[in-house]
Amino acid sequence: MKHAIAAAGEIASRLVEARDHDEPALAWLVEAARELSFVEFDVPEEADADGWLFQYGPVSWLPEPTFVVSVVRQLEVVDADGEHESYVQVQLEVRYDVDDDLAAVGPHSQWWFPGGGTSFDEWLDDVSRAAVWAGLESRSPRDRVAVEDAV
Rank of each mutant, 00 (worst) to 15 (best):
P24L: 02
Q110F: 13
D126C: 08
E10K: 06
R73W: 10
A47M: 03
V94F: 01
L26E: 12
P63Q: 10
H108C: 15
P65N: 09
D101E: 14
F54Q: 09
A104T: 01
R95D: 06
L26A: 13
V94C: 02
P65W: 05
D100E: 13
Y96C: 07
V127E: 00
R139H: 07
A25Y: 00
D121Q: 08
D100N: 13
A8H: 09
V39F: 07
E76C: 12
V30C: 04
F38R: 15
S119T: 12
F38A: 15
P24E: 08
I5G: 12
R19K: 15
P44S: 04
D101S: 03
L102S: 06
P63F: 09
G57P: 01
A7Y: 05
D50T: 09
P65E: 14
A25I: 05
E10M: 05
A27H: 06
G115I: 06
D121G: 06
E10T: 10
V16E: 13
E148K: 08
I5P: 09
A32R: 00
A6P: 02
R129E: 08
K2L: 04
V68C: 10
G106S: 11
E76F: 02
T118H: 00
Q74T: 14
E137G: 01
L75A: 06
W133C: 11
G82Q: 08
V71G: 00
P114A: 07
A146G: 07
G82S: 05
L53V: 15
V39R: 09
S86N: 14
V69K: 01
L15D: 00
V105G: 02
W61R: 01
E122F: 00
D101Q: 02
F54G: 12
